[in-house]
Amino acid sequence: MSYDYLFKYIIIGDTGVGKSCLLLQFTDKRFQPVHDLTIGVEFGARMVTIDGRPIKLQIWDTAGQESFRSITRSYYRGAAGALLVYDITRRETFNHLASWLEDARQHANPNMTILLVGNKSDLAHRRAVSKEEGEQFAKENGLLFLEASARTGQNVEEAFTKTAAKILQKIQEGVFDVSNESSGIKVGYGRAQGPAGGRDGAVAQRGGCCS
């Protein structure tokens, strides 16, 4: 598969807010009511098309409880986008957003695009955080915002693509130095921007032989 860009995403948020379920819904289009808890980090990948451009997303799904700076720090490295997830039925997961954000700001690329996800929107009857509060928090902190449901799949796709679109926009605005891998962006085949380095070459080769 060829792609124009490859973005690294990271999903963060308290334990049990549904990070892994969001990922599973996005990559496999299914929902697992009881998902194994994540230990350390798990991974997913999918192609999306933004503005007619194939973009590959590589997603790092992190453990919510992981609080070891020495380990989590490196998860952020080279991430172009982040989904910061809370559970609309559990107030405390919303209350912890600030500390997650601080973590991200501290360890991630400053240009990383962050989208706030209020997950479990299907459980509106148990809602403990209003949509407005979420929007407000996002606005104050310069985040994108969506309420989504990993169970129904509502807005899951959008959460990932909206982030990708924003990143793409930033690239076009020249915010990123795409040749620098720490941006979390790799240029794929069919988009020769400047001389392709060794690894880009590898990407190009694979893209070429299979498309």
Binding site: M1, T27, D28, R46, M47, K56, R206, C210
Partner: peptide
């Protein structure tokens, strides 16, 4: 290589 590509594609 084929397999890998297939695995990485989305379901759709």
């Amino acid at each position: 290589a084929f397999e890998q590509d297939r695995g990485q594609m989305g379901p759709q």
